[in-house]
Write a protein that binds this DNA or RNA. Structure first.
Lengths: 246, 246
DNA sequence: CGAGGGTTTGAAGTGCATCAAATAGTGTGG
DNA sequence: CCACACTATTTGATGCACTTCAAACCCTCG
């Protein structure tokens, strides 16, 4: 499959562009740039004027904010199919966070100006985008609640539960999507705390941990432990992969 | 001034409706209901199907989420000119938080269906709304960062700094907008912690506290203390009163 | 094998929560 | 105008959760 076809296909899978006429996709493909980056590559910095937005084809990226005294808050960790940097056009034309590749990634970047003009022109895209932003608001609201009210082990439990389809019953084995240090940062805790909290979770609920493989013996027990500290109850929506429909 | 004129005027001050033709305002006024509520009144609960959205004319309301085991996260505290509950239409048609009056308030409620149809019809409103949601995203992003990285005294300092126009120099005297218990909840801490953290702030920076009146002797010193734990630096945008232009 | 990063463990400290109680402030009816 | 009731705020004592610093361990990859 040639490069352009591949990009086109990736773009068609985006809910924000759902319902666009073919020529719009053509225009996006025209303006696209594909690149591959290794771990450590900074894509852009917070408050930088935003020119382009990104779509991950493979690999992992983290979005973060860095305080003046050097502390870092990981806002999100993204993978294949995820879109980021697109909100800049609706507010100040600056990125609201920095973005860094954390695992060798292939990505497509697209001009924000093009997106903006399409949004202004095409009602369907506009509504998709509204929905997209609203979903993101929900996700952030939940994030705030979790940070304010959940304990470290609860946050981990909650994170684990959102890694698989919660409507399935029975024991589940999952693979942690990225390394524990990063999960810890994503959940707003230190690596040491993560390690200890996971151990506590092992004694409190019946999960098994072997390296990066976690086996949940009893989903009900884990959710009873974790979801008590959340307003959404169990099962809860994913909200994570808002942009991909694989 | 008669009731309808008053509502019309309040609606015209809303940035989300900026640029609407007069007949749209008429329609909103037609569908509006004005009510006055005392402290303690619950306007709606999280996850309830959303029918109407609200505009505060006076008084105070708090938005919060409550976990299964009873803990409460205060998402925001709103006052005159603020709009809330409007995001429900873009996602699941349910309120993402509960709302309660915390100080006798007068408010206008409007049908969400009407707003939705206007958004779908009128490009100007749609773009306003996108901007509005994006701004809200920024605000939440900052909130997340603060919860994750700032200490209690820093959060208070940051809160104080956003109570007045930071571009002014010199000492400033401000009045806390609502009671300390609620501020504490808004900042994600216990009332006791708030009290002690404020006392610490008094020794670390040169602020004076007398009841609910706070005098900041040296803004630079306060911001040096507080803003180090934030990525935005000083001065920072308000982002708070996104909906009012008084 | 050895280097280097990820992960765990231990010991000690800090910050915030919790529980309990005192104090200040506010609005009430007498 | 005072006494009372009630709520907001502060203070003290104590405990737990998370962090910090230090070191060991483990795993992978050259």
């Amino acid at each position: 499959m040639d490069q352009k076809t591949k990009i086109n296909k990736a773009l068609r899978a985006l809910p924000v562009l759902e319902g666009c006429p073919p020529e719009v996709f053509e225009r996006f493909v025209e303006g696209s740039i594909v690149s591959v980056h290794d771990k450590g590559k900074i894509l852009f910095l917070q408050d930088e004027p935003a020119e382009r937005f990104y779509l991950l084809l493979s690999g992992w990226a983290k979005l973060f904010r860095e305080t003046l005294d050097g502390a870092q808050a990981v806002v999100d960790v993204l993978s294949s199919g995820d879109l980021f940097g697109e909100t800049a056009i609706f507010y100040e034309n600056e990125y609201p966070f920095s973005a860094e590749i954390v695992e060798r990634a292939e990505l497509v970047s697209l001009p924000l100006a093009l997106f903006k003009s399409e949004v202004e022109k095409n009602g369907a895209i506009t509504l998709n985008t509204l929905h997209h932003l609203a979903r993101h608001n929900r996700k952030q609201g939940r994030e705030i609640e979790h940070l304010a009210l959940q304990s470290a082990p609860q946050r981990i439990g909650c994170f684990l539960l959102r890694l698989f389809d919660q409507t399935q019953g029975g024991p589940v084995t999952i693979h942690l999507p990225y390394d524990k240090t990063l999960i810890a940062a994503r959940l707003g805790m230190q690596p040491e705390t993560f390690s200890r909290a996971l151990k506590k979770l092992r004694t409190e609920t019946d999960i098994d941990v072997a390296g990066s493989t976690v086996t949940i013996g009893d989903i009900g027990r884990l959710s009873a432990y974790s979801c008590g500290g959340c307003s959404s109850g169990f099962p809860c929506d994913d909200l994570e992969h808002a942009n991909c429909r694989h």
